[in-house]
Simulated assay, not measured.
Amino acid sequence: MPGTGGPGLGARDAGVPVVARGWPVGDRPAVLRGWEPPATPYGRGHRGVDLAAPAGAPVRAVAAGTVSFAGRVAGRGVVSVELTGTGDPPLRTTYEPVAVSESVSVEKGDDVAAGEVLGTVEPTGSHCTGCLHWGLLRGDVYLDPLSLLPPWLLDGGPPVLLPVLGVPEPARPRA
């Protein structure tokens, strides 16, 4: 399939349905670091994308699903959501660092809707500050999370028709 529509955004993963209709943070956050798949299961790489997001920004589920994990891993808040209707094994999105508070709390087993707030971006992350690390897996295989988004979200929006200027109107037939 064609690329995701922007420089450095990576190639679309075959077999990943376009299920998201919004970004996990903001309207169109900057991609600070793209997906770099490892050559081997334990090799070097970047198993997700880093999206610019200030501390306290709401983190939203990109698609409907069930929370499969909500807790701390290596001192960071992590939320994982298995996406509804995405095959067997289902696609699973991950979000970190996410703070879950009394006002916004998700737990393992909770059903979430697309766009539902899962928590907020914690002030510090694992490898970047001021960002959300967003991942995508099918089973144990990491995929490009940007492949969940429709191309118009990656390219900045749907096409817009503009008026044609400087072109004379066609002659009208006489009655």
Rank of each mutant, 00 (worst) to 15 (best):
P2Y: 10
G3K: 01
G5C: 12
G6F: 00
G6D: 11
G8E: 10
R12E: 03
D13F: 02
P17V: 11
V18N: 02
V19K: 07
W23E: 11
P24E: 12
P24S: 12
V31Y: 13
V31M: 11
W35F: 15
E36T: 13
A39V: 08
T40K: 06
T40H: 08
R44L: 13
D50K: 05
L51M: 09
L51H: 06
P54T: 10
P58C: 13
V59R: 01
R60F: 02
R60T: 10
A61P: 03
V62Q: 04
A64Y: 12
V67M: 09
V67W: 08
S68Q: 09
F69M: 07
G71S: 07
G71E: 05
R72T: 14
V73L: 15
A74S: 14
G75A: 11
R76P: 01
G77K: 01
G77I: 02
G77D: 02
V78A: 06
V79E: 05
E82S: 15
G85E: 14
G85P: 01
G87F: 05
P90G: 09
R92K: 14
R92E: 15
T93M: 08
V98M: 10
A99Y: 03
A99V: 12
A99W: 05
V100I: 15
S101F: 00
S103C: 00
S105E: 06
V106N: 02
V106G: 04
D110S: 11
D111F: 06
D111E: 14
A113V: 07
G115V: 05
E116Y: 02
L118W: 00
L118S: 03
G119E: 05
T124D: 10
G130K: 10
C131L: 06
L132H: 06
H133I: 14
G135I: 11
D140G: 12
V141G: 01
L143G: 05
L143Y: 04
L143F: 07
L146Q: 02
L146I: 13
S147W: 10
S147A: 11
L149I: 05
P150L: 11
L154I: 08
G156V: 09
G156Q: 00
L161M: 04
L161H: 10
P163H: 03
V167S: 08
P168M: 12
P170R: 00
A171H: 01
A171S: 12
R174V: 13
A175T: 09
